[in-house]
Design a protein around this nucleic acid. Structure first.
Lengths: 354, 354
DNA sequence: AACAAAGGTGGAAGCGCTTCCAATGGGCCA
DNA sequence: TGGCCCATTGGAAGCGCTTCCACCTTTGTT
């Protein structure tokens, strides 16, 4: 049953060539007569031989492994849609390029977090690390990785980080601008905005872009009222309630992510408001909730998978050139404004839930 | 900058002992004077030495890696909540037990899927594999893995599989029973049920348990009307619409997962029905949507993380005993019925959206 | 006090693979 | 025909680590 696995020497013996030649064949090396090549391949098949990845690495020097690191708080639900999307994009790219992906999850509160990250490089010997938010904006962590000489790509990092290493993400500022443009086009002039938690870089950029658009349209800054949420459904409910039940109800409510927008939708429903006629609502990210709520949510599609894939490509690219450091800077991945019924008054879909 | 990494020999030289001794120290082996141990540790720290995982494996024989395999269809969204939960539970358990987790995603349509799975064992040399649905019910795949002599745990597998190897999951039959009991307790006697796709084992079990409860309550089989959905939000909408707008409207509608239940909620709202007074709705899984919809959904909490953790524990356990095969059988992880406003008429929360 | 049984330490042999380098044999040029 | 270049192939040296064994100290035992 579990007789020892065949090694490269077994294959060599079986096909009557030297180990070196077998190695050439399985690595598609040059200088092997096709007759010999076929003979070796036959032996490989006959013996059901598979290379030992560890041995190959030890001898060859590279693991061909890229590490993707997620943050995860014990008490909070992970943002699974975001993480999965990133992972999926990265995994596909790895498969295409012949690399392996190593995913790990580290708690931002873990006192050993820096050491764990470092181990990815020093023990696992991955050829590069990808940090997702919020680690991607943890300057200390970034510096640790960089100091170790490990190629690093940070997802959606802010300037402090992308000044040091490569970052890929969507252009949040532009996304905010695009959404504002849409809102303005729909005729809204009394707008409320639920921002993300203070210090959240992407959220900040979205609002900056949003404001810029308003400014360019010569609208007084007072047109926009801003409150601070924490990205949760629940915070969307309460903050939206305040906006919608207060004086001077806005005609449009924009939220820094879809979950809060879903909460806003709920508050609007509770108050008996028509969406989007009484109040238009929009979010960011295009997560699955945006299609599950009623009415479906206008939002900005964040190209998560593409971001994961690009991160891998950047690392592989650097590896191929033998670079140990990636060119600093932010690489923007194209986003897309997704117009749905929550803002589009001309949609023929039902606009009110009851 | 990138001077070569220190090896065990460097540490040995630095602390003036033999390589063997250093190995003993870093592996917490016996037979080292504490004075020497400390000296070596100091060298390790001074040189910032880290073991090379690959080399250790090559020499030592075990990678300490466990592979978790997800299925993923290109066109469909991954069920990210499920996968992340599993992964998280598994990762935590791995961290606790000192093992590494290797996640990979394979398309069920990939012609090389069997070979890719096999590679996890034969090339990567993982010490065990965890298969998540739907792979966990793919008998061919299971047999492949088993034939290779690789310890295997299947998540929520059906009998055909758990007769061959270990499976962990929640007891879907019992979960269905529990939910039926709740529905009955709430006084419903005219019940509709949206089942999962035909052949889906968990869904099938849920319905079996549900029916059993009804039978034990001496309710005629005609009490329950069943339709077949495909687990999507959209299928929930359409099927629920048929039930709710047809003759003899049921007073309770149970769906085989939360997404369909969310769709059902939507249909009910569109028809102007009160929830739960006109129609009670319940789902399965306790995914995030169940809290985001209105009213919040009564559902059965599936202990996904625990399942992932148990799967790891089983494999590690087997590894420790030197077993290459896990005891076949289904290990049930405790679930929990979560009562929310979508069925509980006595809840004081608002029960209608407008 | 003499001897055995631990306790501590170093030497050396691989684990399975890649890769540098030397060796072989033809084909080609002048 | 002699010399040279190149396509093929094999030999051998490690990659960094664990581990079996042999060797030398210490202890503990009658």
């Amino acid at each position: 049953m579990s007789k020892k696995r065949p090694t490269i020497d077994d294959v060599a013996a079986h096909s009557g060539v030297a180990r070196t030649t077998v190695s050439r064949v399985i690595n598609n090396g040059p200088n092997v007569r096709s007759e010999v090549r076929e003979r070796v391949m036959a032996s490989v098949a006959a013996l059901d031989y598979r290379v030992n990845a560890q041995a190959r690495m030890l001898a060859g020097g590279s693991t061909g492994l890229i590490a993707l690191v997620h943050a995860f708080e014990l008490d909070a639900e992970p943002n699974s849609y975001y993480h999965s999307g990133l992972e999926l994009g990265a995994m596909r790219a790895c498969a295409d390029l012949g690399y392996g992906l190593h995913t790990s999850t580290i708690s931002p509160a873990d006192p050993e977090r820096y050491s764990k990250i470092h181990d990815l490089f020093s023990r696992l010997r991955c050829i590069g690390i990808i940090l997702s938010p919020p680690f991607s904006d943890d300057v200390t962590m970034v510096q640790q990785v960089l100091a170790a000489g490990c190629p690093l790509v940070c997802i959606s990092a802010g300037e402090a980080v992308y000044a040091k290493t490569a970052s890929v993400g969507m252009d949040d500022d532009l996304a905010g601008y695009a959404l504002a443009q849409h809102i303005l086009t729909e005729g809204h002039r009394n707008i409320a905005y639920i921002d993300g938690p203070q210090g959240h870089i992407s959220a900040g950029q979205r609002l900056v872009g949003f404001r810029r658009c308003l400014a360019e349209a010569d609208l007084p800054q007072t047109t926009l009222r801003v409150a601070i949420g924490n990205f949760t459904f629940r915070s969307g409910i309460t903050i939206a309630h305040d906006f919608l039940s207060g004086a001077k109800r806005p005609s449009a409510l924009v939220c820094a992510n879809d979950d809060m927008a879903a909460g806003a939708l709920l508050s609007a429903h509770r108050l008996g408001l028509n969406i989007p006629d009484d109040i238009a609502v929009a979010g960011f990210d295009d997560t699955p909730v945006s299609e599950i709520v009623w009415p479906p949510l206008t939002t900005v599609h964040q190209p998560i998978r593409r971001m994961g894939a690009r991160a891998i490509e950047r690392i592989v690219d650097a590896a191929n050139r033998g670079q140990r450091t990636l060119a600093p800077g932010f690489e923007a991945i194209a986003f897309k404004l997704v117009q749905r019924a929550s803002t589009a008054s001309n949609t023929n879909a039902p606009t009110r839930m009851v």
